[in-house]
C-alpha cells in the first residue's frame, strides 16, 4: 500500500505497512533537488549581495528613484530603530523599569518601551519629509547616480554563461530533451 502522493507499481522495499515504490522514490529525489537548488540560490544571493548595492544597481538599471528611496530608507531605518530602542530602554531602566528576570517580567517590561520608540520616530516624520523636499527629492526624472558597483569581466562572463544555461534548460524542457516529472 502506498500512503504517499504517488502510487507506484514497482515496489522496491517494504517497511511495515508502507511500500516504497520506484516512482515514489524518484519523485522524492526530484523534489529534494529542486528545494536544494532554490534554497542555495537564495542563500548565495543573500551572502554575496549587499542589499544597499543591490538597490542602487537596480536604480541604475531603471528602478524608479522613489521605490529605491523607500527600499534604502528601510534598510537604514532598522539599525536606527534598534539604537533608539536601546537608548529608551536605558532611560526606562534608570527610572526603575525591570527589563530582566523571568519571561513574564520581561514581557511586562517591553510595553513601556514600544510606545516611546514608535512615537519618537513618528514625531520627526513631518520635519524629515520637509528636509527631503528642500533637497529636491520630489523632482521627476532620472538621477545621475554617483555609485557604480564594480562589475569585472569575469563576473560578466559567469553571468552570461548562467543566462545561456537558463535559456538552454527552458529550451530543453520545451523540446522534450529534459522531460517534466511524470
Amino acid at each position: 500500500m502506498s500512503v504517499f502522493t504517488r502510487a507506484g507499481t514497482t515496489v522496491l522495499f517494504t517497511i511495515g505497512p508502507f511500500d516504497a515504490t520506484l516512482q515514489g522514490v524518484d519523485f522524492a529525489g526530484q523534489t529534494l533537488v529542486r528545494l536544494l537548488a532554490i534554497s542555495t540560490a537564495i542563500g548565495l544571493f543573500g551572502l554575496t549581495t549587499e542589499p544597499r548595492s543591490f538597490v542602487l544597481d537596480l536604480e541604475r538599471r531603471g528602478l524608479s528613484p522613489r521605490f529605491a528611496f523607500v527600499a534604502l530608507a528601510t534598510l537604514e531605518a532598522v539599525p536606527a530603530m534598534v539604537e533608539r530602542a536601546s537608548v529608551i530602554a536605558s532611560a526606562q531602566r534608570a527610572r526603575g523599569l525591570d527589563t530582566e528576570g523571568s519571561i513574564r517580567a520581561r514581557l511586562r517590561g517591553l510595553l513601556p518601551l514600544v510606545g516611546p520608540v514608535i512615537l519618537s520616530s513618528l514625531t520627526e516624520v513631518e520635519e524629515r519629509s520637509l528636509a527631503l523636499e528642500v533637497r529636491a527629492f520630489g523632482k521627476p526624472g532620472r538621477r545621475q547616480l554617483l555609485w557604480r558597483i564594480p562589475d569585472s569581466g569575469a563576473q560578466l562572463a559567469v553571468r552570461s554563461l548562467l543566462m545561456l544555461a537558463l535559456v538552454a534548460a527552458i529550451a530543453g524542457r520545451l523540446t522534450g530533451t529534459f522531460p517534466a516529472l511524470p
Partner: peptide, 18 residues
C-alpha cells in the same frame, strides 16, 4: 528647492536616511 532652501534646527531630521 532650486530657488530657496531651509535648514531646520534638529540635525537628525535633516538627514536623508539613505
Amino acid at each position: 528647492a532650486q530657488r530657496v532652501v531651509v535648514g531646520f534646527q534638529n540635525p537628525n531630521t535633516q538627514r536623508s536616511g539613505i
